[in-house]
Computed example of a mutant assay.
Amino acid sequence: MPAEPLALVYGRRLRHACLRGIETTNLAHAVELLGQHQQPVRLGQIRAADGSWTFMLFFTEDGSRLIVCTGVRRARA
Rank of each mutant, 00 (worst) to 15 (best):
H16F: 15
E4F: 08
R42C: 05
L34H: 00
T70L: 10
D62G: 05
T54P: 12
A77P: 15
T54D: 11
R15I: 12
Q45E: 15
E61L: 10
E32W: 06
R13V: 05
F59R: 08
Y10I: 08
R47Q: 14
A17H: 02
D50T: 06
T54V: 14
V68L: 01
T24C: 09
D62M: 13
R12S: 09
T60M: 06
S52H: 05
A77C: 13
W53T: 08
R65H: 08
D62E: 03
L8H: 15
Q36N: 14
V68R: 00
V9A: 09
R74D: 11
T25Q: 13
T25Y: 10
R73M: 05
V9S: 06
F58Q: 00
V41D: 01
H37G: 00
E23W: 09
V72N: 07
F55E: 13
T60G: 02
L14N: 11
N26T: 10
M1Q: 10
F59I: 03
R65E: 04
N26D: 14
L8E: 15
L27S: 03
E4V: 07
R13I: 07
C69L: 03
F59T: 02
G35A: 03
A48M: 07
V41S: 02
I46C: 12
V9Q: 09
I67W: 04
E32Q: 13
E23N: 09
L57F: 08
E4K: 15
F59A: 04
R42G: 03
P5I: 02
C18F: 11
Q36L: 13
A17N: 03
P40D: 15
C18S: 13
